[in-house]
Computed example of a mutant assay.
Amino acid sequence: MNTLERRGLAAISTPAGRMLIVAADQRNGMKQAMTDAPGGPGAISIGELAAAKADLVRHLGNNAPAILLDPEVALPAVVDDGVLTGNTALVVGMDASGYETVDGLRYTRYVDGVTPRRVRELGGDVAKMLWYLRPDRQDGRSRAGVEMRDLIEACTGEGLLLIVEILTYRLEGESEQEYAAAFPDLVAGGARLAAECGAKVLKLQYPGSAEGCAAVTAAAGGVPWAVLSAGVDHETFLGQVGTAMANGAGGAMAGRSLWKDSLSISADLRADYLTKRALPRLSELREVVDGMLPGR
């Protein structure tokens, strides 16, 4: 890492040097969490979603070292309106919702116009980009590998730390049992491929066990990695984070495990839920990340 990238890593970390980021860049997933909306989640407007994201920043994200937000709904409003405090670092997600499929493989789409320079213009301290990977089918010369290497280099040129998020997935025709058996190796293989492409920080799925976490740490070759929550419940995620941290992980990036039952369409209920449900969970997660509370 260069000096600016090191500053970026420090900004998204606790005083103990462990990454802790509230993930709030979801769009469709966040709508689905607002199940009490009149007419259902599909009736939620962009303005209502933006208000929910602002409340999530106000009542939860501002209590974390960093928050991950999207440039389609949340930004730049939460910065321009003074909702995001100066004590919380901003991670800007560069990936659009969904993916395209080519020859059976998934490919992430970028948000239109969001370059490393645009991340800086939005007030971002750090950037994040998602790649779907099947390291048993792809390598550093593949489309995904080339795209990853190019964006890492572009962010480095801008003095911007890029968090590389890797998600593996089940192929068409692959049974659930086959995928489950391959999953730990796929997570480790994705970490290895990303590190070979120059990744400096990784956001990864929990590989399923202490042995899997140790294998990911070895595959990453010194690149720090944070475990993502993937929609599991809070208690489950605490256990996963505790195991991951004990086996070489460098932190956690939590989204739905913190806030999925707190995003009422009502602003008053939302503030109450985020304060009484989500915020205590963030405190517990911080203690696990920093090693003060064993994972459950």
Results as ranks from 00 to 15, higher is better:
A54M: 10
A54K: 15
A54G: 13
A54F: 09
L56K: 14
V57N: 14
V57E: 13
R58Y: 02
R58F: 07
R58C: 08
R58V: 03
H59L: 15
H59S: 11
H59T: 05
H59F: 15
L60D: 15
G61S: 06
G61T: 01
N62H: 08
N62A: 03
N63I: 01
N63G: 09
N63Q: 14
N63C: 05
A64K: 02
A64D: 04
P65I: 00
P65S: 09
I67C: 12
I67Y: 10
I67D: 09
I67S: 06
L68Y: 05
L68Q: 07
L69F: 05
P71E: 06
P71F: 13
V73I: 15
A74P: 10
A74W: 05
A74S: 15
L75C: 08
L75R: 11
L75A: 10
P76A: 09
V79A: 10
V79P: 11
D80Y: 07
D80R: 14
D81Y: 01
D81Q: 13
G82I: 00
G82S: 08
G82C: 07
G82F: 09
V83Q: 09
L84N: 02
L84Y: 07
T85V: 04
T85E: 12
G86V: 03
G86S: 12
G86C: 07
N87L: 06
N87H: 13
T88G: 04
T88L: 04
T88E: 01
A89F: 03
A89V: 08
A89S: 08
A89G: 06
L90M: 07
L90P: 07
L90H: 04
V91A: 12
V91R: 11
V92N: 03
V92P: 02
G93V: 01
G93M: 10
G93F: 05
M94N: 08
D95N: 14
S97Q: 13
S97F: 07
E100V: 15
T101P: 03
D103Q: 11
G104T: 02
G104H: 02
G104R: 00
L105M: 05
L105A: 04
L105R: 00
R106G: 00
R106C: 00
Y107H: 14
T108H: 02
